[in-house]
Design a protein around this nucleic acid. Sequence first.
DNA 1: TGCCGTCAGTGACGTCGTCACGCTCAGCGC
DNA 2: GCGCTGAGCGTGACGACGTCACTGACGGCA
Lengths: 221, 221
Amino acid sequence: MSETIEQALERAAPGLSDRLRKAIAARASRVRVHDGHRLFGPGDRSENFLIALSGAVRVEHMGPSGRSVVLYRVAPGESCVMTTSCLLSGAAYEAYGYAEGEVEAIAVPAVAFRELVEQEAAFRDLALSVFSQRIIELVDVIDELLLHRVDLRLASWLADRAPAGGVIAATHQSIASELGTAREVVSRILKEFERRGWLKLTRGEIRVADPGSLQVFSATR
Amino acid sequence: MSETIEQALERAAPGLSDRLRKAIAARASRVRVHDGHRLFGPGDRSENFLIALSGAVRVEHMGPSGRSVVLYRVAPGESCVMTTSCLLSGAAYEAYGYAEGEVEAIAVPAVAFRELVEQEAAFRDLALSVFSQRIIELVDVIDELLLHRVDLRLASWLADRAPAGGVIAATHQSIASELGTAREVVSRILKEFERRGWLKLTRGEIRVADPGSLQVFSATR
DNA sequence: TGCCGTCAGTGACGTCGTCACGCTCAGCGC
DNA sequence: GCGCTGAGCGTGACGACGTCACTGACGGCA
């Protein structure tokens, strides 16, 4: 590992001041997690404030039945609010965190987190602004779950990540958790889209033939 | 108004230090809102950090169809995170805030909020801990909406606020938005509960005859 | 007394989650 | 090659729930 924590931070969060990067680097340790691996799960206690450097962390909530929803993703330069919430309130996680891609992150222990909050205005702003952002995103998730039809949400999800004729690698199950619904529902709707000629289904991947129609469909209410 | 802002703060938030109360009082103004009145709604811009002193603020999200869910309630001594989020991110509200009871609150302008965050450690802790708490509560709301049956949630809601033979004053519509469902659904389920002898329905109120059975029922999955 | 707005009851229907299957396609050992 | 196994997918039946469209019941209020 030739790159220092400070250099990694500069790459991931160019907005921070040199001073703050130094301050964080002095207190943090480095964490690496491989693609698909779990970072935390329900019942775990949070002991560190996390800032992602590369890769992303998918945070999802799961109920006893096994159904799950993606709450948000932590991008490089961002911190994970579930972790921070649990750190501050002492509560156990109610969500899973999974690595997407090779994840590097820095971990700031609770005490050091408090120090940084005390001493570094930019760090306070970082923490508060990420909280603000996530609150709004969580309300969006509630809005989606509560008020929008699954077929429209699925169409929109597909249109968003289909580079015109592109292939999306995902199982129906993974899409179902993404949207907070059941696999069978995703299968049925995808089949219907295929009948309409908007895409082709093969095992483990979806070839989007007509992203335009998906887009239009997702906008009909 | 004989009571000063400082005295009101002491009553509502006895945990704060004298110093912090003084600091807040020096920068804040006072707000009064009558029962049922709206404090904010979608599209409004947030210009103040709010701390409730008495009464409660019900924060609910509403979709275009008119269906709504209660996201959380702001109790005396707490601040409203939607307000804070919007203040910090500059985004417009996506939720409604309604007074429950006669609400008194103090409003701290954005600039003064930043000053307090800078200078008062206890204020930072207050802001961060309320954020933490709400994040966890919002995830609970998602969990409820996504994974629990309406009849069980309704039974639990009734059992929670029925003082054994007590009367709950609420319209079916208000209960529906409390739980994020539709009025008709609430009506049907309540009717079923009445058939089972657990309660009596009259216009605008519900007489709970058997909170025990409701409790038991709500625990069956 | 009649008008009107709010609240509640009800049936029909469509969407969606759940359950219970059965099928297909790798990969792997033999 | 053959069969085994597990992951991924297709499908029908059914129940829960949201939506729509109406109806009636009750309480002010002119």
